[in-house]
């Protein structure tokens, strides 16, 4: 009988110990849940702030050898030029002439005789690529605009 009481007492203390661990676990879980919610709110607020400062653009780099790479949703500052945008996604070499910046190399590709880097603008109405009207450092991008750099033979 006393053995049974002793075992009962032991189990009661084990249960109470587990209750203590449960309380700690609940506290820790609630604390980290609360923290995650707080950081989520901070992240969302920061993302909203960034949206006001940045805009996404889509950039295609066509190396003219069958290799082409898209940089969709590239975030650039509002009022950025195409020159600033291409420098965000690629290593660019250039010269500055009287009409503005002329890109000579993108990611090390360029400098071949009669081949040049030309930029194009996607016209969503006609669904065609059109030549860039000005030098890349003079063209101010718009939100969600699609542009392409193509290494072309002339």
């Amino acid at each position: 009988m006393s053995e049974r009481t002793g075992a009962k007492g032991l189990w009661m203390w084990i249960s109470l110990g587990l209750v203590c661990l449960l309380i700690i676990s609940i506290y820790v879980a609630a604390y980290y849940y609360n923290e995650s919610e707080r950081y989520k709110r901070l992240y969302e607020r920061a993302a909203e702030d960034l949206k006001r400062l940045l805009m996404p653009v889509n950039i295609l780099i066509d190396y003219g050898n069958g290799t082409a790479k898209w940089y969709n949703g590239t975030l650039v500052q509002r009022e950025s030029t195409l020159f600033e945008a291409i420098r965000r996604v690629a290593k660019v070499e250039y010269i500055t002439g009287q009409y503005g910046v002329f890109v000579t190399h993108i990611n090390g590709v360029g400098g071949d005789p009669n081949r040049y880097w030309i930029w194009y603008l996607w016209n969503p109405t006609t669904k065609e690529w059109t030549w860039g009207p000005v030098a890349c450092d003079a063209y101010v991008l718009h939100e969600e605009e699609i542009v392409a750099w193509r290494y072309e033979q002339f």
Binding site: C20, I23, I24, Y27, V28, A30, Y31, N34
Partner: peptide, 17 residues
Amino acid sequence: VILQGIAFALAHEISNF
């Protein structure tokens, strides 16, 4: 109140243990 005081409660309870 409980969420704000979790760290303090934990410190209190564990230290008392």
